[in-house]
Design a protein around this nucleic acid. Structure first.
Lengths: 183, 183
DNA sequence: AAGATAAGTGAGCGATCGCTTACTTTAAAA
DNA sequence: TTTTAAAGTAAGCGATCGCTCACTTATCTT
């Protein structure tokens, strides 16, 4: 799939030429351009999410579980930068609404159980889901974005080391851990 | 500017028709399609950043300064959802590299001074800039994204209340505050 | 081997793309 | 009031778009 120029600039004729097949062949497998993009998105996103659950268990301690997820996501993103780029472009396409529902189905249950367990064990404060997500994952994604982008505020490019990731994770954990009740 | 369908689906002819002018008129003011997009991006992004500095002073206490910035950003984003949508689409366009440098020029100095002051006053731990940014702003942006998106994991839509924002801010501040040195 | 079905193709349709040209209108300067 | 230049337009160029059709080739069934 051609992503270099964004979803704009992506055309069926262009794709066919690049793949060395006739445009007509593409329409054997996909109803139209939109169907091609949507099916590809679902396939890529699904792979990403399954990857993020590799060696993960919703019964893990919160810190370990979150670290595992961060590592899985970071690894996958580093190894498949084109996939990430594609998904991020999609996220702001008008087509995204048509797939966002289907993507997170399997993921939701596992993640919900993990959070529920952590709260029960007093390893995690109780929060609206969106607030939790914004703290638990948005910083990681931002770091990856910095890593992927060439220019960042005019500095030299940022490289996401394990140290930087662990440092950020520790701060996130600090924010999400319940305050010990003074006896 | 037409953004409904993303940067793909945006065309000069279409824009001209929607604006009730001739395509040729557009080329009086912009060199080509790319120039139009880039200039528009810079204008929109610049407004956003100046807005985010409204009533902000780099000498403010860290918590107050960060809160002010969160409020400014949130307010602007709520009032100009199309601008946000446009900028986010741009962020993943191949054109973004051509503007990212110019956008943050004024902003960088003020922000740098603010962070520097906060560290000097021991209100903020010392961090690589990208780690700081990932913790200080990415959660807010994620919350706004949840607020803007229709579908979120199949829940009912998320509404970003002042309470939710303040709660998240407090957690971010907790993560970024230096540990008191036990005497 | 003959027939049926699936898989793939080359050519090109109408529509739209980004963009230009030859020309007209508007408005300020002389 | 005439002159001049800036501002805008209708028409349409070549290229590419998404997509289809009439047809050929490969594969499987009997």
């Amino acid at each position: 799939m051609i992503v270099k120029e964004g979803l704009d600039g992506f055309g069926v004729n262009k794709l066919a030429r690049a793949a060395g097949v006739s445009p007509a062949t593409i329409y054997i497998y996909y109803k139209d351009r939109e169907d091609l993009i949507i099916q590809t998105t679902i396939r890529v996103a699904d792979t990403m999410l399954r990857e993020s659950l590799h060696d993960f268990d919703p019964d893990m301690h919160f810190a370990d579980g979150l670290r595992k997820q961060w590592q899985n996501r970071a690894n996958h993103f580093m190894q498949h930068p084109l996939d990430v780029e594609f998904i991020e472009k999609m996220r702001y396409s008008h087509l995204y609404d048509k797939v966002s529902g289907q993507i997170y189905l399997t993921f939701k249950d596992v993640m919900g159980k993990f959070v529920h367990n952590a709260i029960a064990r007093k390893e995690l404060i109780e929060l609206p889901f969106e607030v939790y997500w914004s703290l638990a994952f948005a910083p990681l994604y931002q770091l990856i974005k910095f890593h992927t982008q060439k220019k960042t505020f005019g500095h030299q490019p940022f490289v996401l080391t394990e140290e930087a990731m662990e440092q950020t994770l520790q701060l996130v954990l600090k924010a999400l851990k319940p305050d010990p009740i003074p006896s």
